[in-house]
Design a protein around this nucleic acid. Structure first.
Length: 325
DNA sequence: TATGTTCTTCTATACGAAGC
DNA sequence: GCTTCGTATAGAAGAACATA
């Protein structure tokens, strides 16, 4: 079993300070003799040494950990965001801990309290409601909101410009289709509202052609596509889905009903995924800039952790369009 | 030899929570 | 209220060396 600094010091016959200086590579700076340095290193080599993070956190009053609270990891956007944010956090010396809420207010409060009890240095949260964003703003720990802004707190928000995403998608699709239906979920979410608002500002669309219900999951997409099929008397010529899980469910219905996905349906998708390239259909997807989102979020977080003030309350990053025709 | 300077090593203390 | 856990760190003590 690895020894503590104190145990190593006793074995080497030196002080804990001397051991710590050797461990931290400051032995040359403080001119620790070569004999002492080698003795300490030999004992560490023989017995091992693992830094006790709990004790370090206790002393330094920081844990070098960041919490990330997202609705779901089955949504490819969030799983990609988590991976990118974790990688960038690690590069900065932080360990990222992630939890999912399923957009449940009680669960969100539970995981946030759990993170706070572990003294995370900061929290990234995709709040599940306007009330939750308001409540979280009262926490003392630095908080950066991701992806969603209900405008109920003064804390910084890093998100994609979804209005612009809607406009970009509508502009491109208007060249390819004359008839489009929108399938979506979670109508209360600002991201969903902005996407539809942006889209409608370029491509006027009747309210009857916008089907929204339930939560952001595959089963919802399946049900919505089934309703649209029944209402329309067949598959539509153009389809826009508000998120990837909804698209996945819609495609599942079509494949089940037709034995294959009719390749003449023009598909518009909010959020992109490499698997969309496997479809034979013309596909236009709005891609969120995940590297930029995570870099911006971490930059804001570092400023808050250092006790500084951020320049803006809201950081809206431009989306990109991926066209596969 | 006395004094001053530089460097090494040691000691005391604080941190938060649990157990006594 | 004291002790314990392991760590970081400020400040103290002591050693080694240079210079007058």
């Amino acid at each position: 079993m690895a020894k503590t600094v104190d145990e190593i010091a006793k074995l080497a016959g030196v002080s804990v300070t001397t051991v710590r200086l050797v461990i931290n590579g400051q032995d040359e700076k403080y001119r620790i003799s070569e004999k002492t340095r080698n003795k300490v290193k030999d004992i560490i080599h023989e017995h091992g040494y693992v830094l006790n993070q709990t004790a370090r956190n206790l002393k330094l009053k920081k844990t070098q950990t960041l919490g990330l609270v997202v609705p779901s990891l089955t949504n490819p956007f969030f799983s990609a965001l988590v991976e990118e944010l974790e990688r960038k956090s690690r590069d900065l010396g932080y360990q990222l801990i992630t939890a999912c809420t399923s957009d449940d207010e009680k669960l969100e409060e539970q995981v946030v309290q759990n993170f706070l009890s572990r003294d995370v240095d900061g929290l990234f949260v995709t709040p599940c409601s306007a009330e939750r964003q308001k409540v979280l703003a009262n926490k003392k720990t630095p908080i950066v909101f991701l992806d969603r802004d209900f405008y109920t707190s003064e804390h910084p928000v890093v998100a994609t410009d979804n209005d612009e995403g809607g406009r970009l998608l509508a502009t491109e699709l208007s060249k390819l289709a004359s008839e489009l239906y929108i399938l979506g979920s979670d109508s209360y979410l600002p991201t969903v509202q902005a996407r539809i608002r942006g889209f409608k500002s370029v491509f006027p669309i009747d309210d009857e052609a916008i089907l929204i219900e339930g939560k952001t999951e595959r089963a919802t997409g399946y049900r919505l596509m089934e309703s649209l099929y029944n209402q329309h008397g067949g598959a539509p010529s153009g389809l826009v889905t508000i998120s990837l899980p909804i698209l996945e469910g819609a495609m599942e219905f079509l494949r089940k009903h037709y034995q294959k996905i009719p390749n003449d349906i023009i598909v518009g998708s909010f959020d992109d995924h490499s698997m969309l390239g496997l479809l034979h259909n013309p596909v236009v997807a709005v891609q969120q800039d995940i590297p930029a989102l995570s870099s911006q979020a971490l930059e804001v977080m570092q400023t808050l952790i250092k006790g500084g003030k951020v320049e803006q309350r809201q950081y809206l990053l431009p989306p990109k369009l991926v066209v596969r025709t």
